[in-house]
Simulated assay, not measured.
Amino acid sequence: MRILFAAFILAGFAMTASATEEPDFETVASEGPIEVRQYEPIIVAETEVTGTMREASGSGFRVLADYIFGNNTARSEIAMTAPVTRTRSSKIDMTAPVTRSMSYNGNWTVSFTMPSKWTMETLPVPNNPAVTIREVPGELLATIRFSGAGQMEVHRQKQAELEDWIAEHGYEITGPARYAGYDAPWKPSPLRRNEVLIPVEQTGPAR
Rank of each mutant, 00 (worst) to 15 (best):
N105M: 10
T132E: 13
T113N: 04
V125K: 15
T81Q: 15
V125T: 15
E77G: 08
F69T: 07
A45H: 06
V125S: 13
S76G: 11
G58Q: 10
E121N: 04
Y39I: 03
M102E: 15
I133K: 07
T73K: 11
F25G: 00
G138Y: 00
I78N: 02
T50D: 15
E121K: 01
T132Q: 14
E48D: 13
G58Y: 14
I78T: 03
P126L: 14
V136D: 01
S116R: 05
I92V: 11
P124C: 06
V125G: 09
G138F: 02
N72W: 00
I133T: 06
F112I: 06
N127W: 12
E121A: 05
I34V: 11
T119S: 00
G70C: 07
S111K: 07
A74R: 02
V36K: 04
Y67R: 07
D66Y: 09
E46F: 13
I78M: 09
Y104G: 15
N72T: 07
R37K: 08
V49T: 07
F25R: 05
R75V: 05
T85H: 12
E77S: 12
I78S: 05
F69L: 07
S103R: 14
L140W: 05
I43D: 01
G106M: 10
T47Q: 10
G70M: 00
E55Q: 15
I43Q: 01
I68C: 00
S59N: 10
I133S: 03
A130Q: 13
S90V: 10
T113H: 06
S116W: 02
A56K: 09
L64Q: 06
P33C: 11
E48F: 03
S116F: 05
F25Q: 04
D93G: 02
N72Y: 04
T132P: 07
E55R: 14
T52L: 09
Y104F: 12
F61T: 01
K117D: 03
L140F: 01
L140Y: 00
R54K: 15
M120K: 05
T50C: 12
V136C: 04
T50E: 15
K91A: 12
I92A: 00
A74F: 02
S76T: 15
Y67H: 11
N105T: 14
S89H: 12
Q38D: 02
S89E: 11
S90W: 00
R100Q: 15
P33E: 13
T50H: 11
N71V: 12
E35N: 04
A65I: 02
R100P: 03
N127F: 12
T113Q: 06
M102P: 07
I43Y: 04
E135R: 10
T47R: 08
P137Y: 07
I42T: 04
A29D: 03
R75K: 13
V49A: 06
L123H: 04
F61S: 00
L140R: 03
V36T: 09
N105Y: 08
V28N: 00
N107F: 09
G32Y: 01
R134M: 10
R100E: 14
G138W: 05
M80I: 09
L140C: 04
G51S: 03
D66S: 15
N107I: 04
Q38C: 05
P129A: 10
T52V: 07
A65T: 01
P129M: 12
G60P: 12
